[in-house]
Design a protein around this nucleic acid. Structure first.
Lengths: 151, 151
DNA sequence: GCTGAAAACGAATATTATTCGGGAGGGGAA
DNA sequence: TTCCCCTCCCGAATAATATTCGTTTTCAGC
């Protein structure tokens, strides 16, 4: 289980990932080796899924963020798995959730242009989709990956 | 501007963030110092927004992921800014987008229990919201932060 | 082909992570 | 209480890695 120091470490890793182990240890009032051992434990036990670099979408030409709601006409487990594997493999699909509500899935997708978006939607339609509703993000107010550990 | 090696570096940093500079340099066929200088440049020029640790939501007790669509009754710039500042400050709000479609905003929110979700929705309602439509994520099919650089 | 700027290299150094031996603290059994 | 054992910590030593530096290469423009 996790004690307060573990939570503190996780919280710091979420927001100040580039802290050196030494700095991290000073923030949580432990020695460097003890802190290091805890981080390794948190990684191994799966509390930390991964480390990642967040790139600037705009600077890299990805200015078109969309949400796509879709329903499928299929109900067989095998076909559903197949569909989901397809969706997961599409690099434009950043997130895909199975949801409550009037649609089966919600996707968050990213594109470089309307042209690419259109091609993507066309591709989706060939995957056995019965309904599609696409909206475009006009402005990003907040985009975070931080869990609210310290509430 | 970015050359092929820069793109290669960014792509590796997205997926194998924990690579040492030496390993990274070997992957892109450059010397360690040259690679390091490029990474620093990419950071400084804003191609890399941040580094972050992705925590395991489930293991940390956050099992309730939601999308909230909302519209506001307000139209004054000042009030809108105020509202957005509020939304951004709420730790349960992981993402907030201003969107096309029948609602003004879409939120991605995270909670530990239905009880907390209810309290959150109540809080939202006190922020000058005219319409709210909340859906719950049943299953995460894909959740990525990776931009499709190599398409 | 010459020249200058930009970018690369290898070696040297500085910083940081990681290992290791030993010791403090705390719970259970006699 | 005392002893033992387990867990976790610490500081020092070592290993790995990042970073700096002086020099060399590369290449576009003349």
């Amino acid at each position: 289980m996790l004690d307060d120091v573990d939570i503190h470490i996780l919280d710091l890793l979420q927001t100040e990932t580039r802290l050196s182990n030494l700095e991290l240890s000073q923030r949580v009032n432990l020695s460097a080796p003890a802190t290091h051992a805890r981080v390794k434990r948190l990684e191994q036990e799966g509390y930390i899924d991964s480390y990642t670099a967040i790139l600037n979408q705009e600077k890299l030409g990805y200015d078109l963020l969309c949400t796509v709601f879709m329903s499928t006409g299929i109900h067989q487990t095998q076909e559903i798995n197949e569909l989901e594997r397809h969706l997961s493999a599409m690099p434009e699909v950043m997130e895909c959730y199975c949801m409550t509500g009037s649609f089966d899935y919600m996707l968050k997708t990213i594109h470089r242009s309307r042209k690419e978006l259109e091609a993507f939607i066309r591709e989706l339609n060939q995957l056995g989709v019965s309904q599609l509703q696409t909206s475009i993000v006009l402005r990003e107010v907040k985009a975070s990956t931080v869990l609210p550990l310290r509430k």
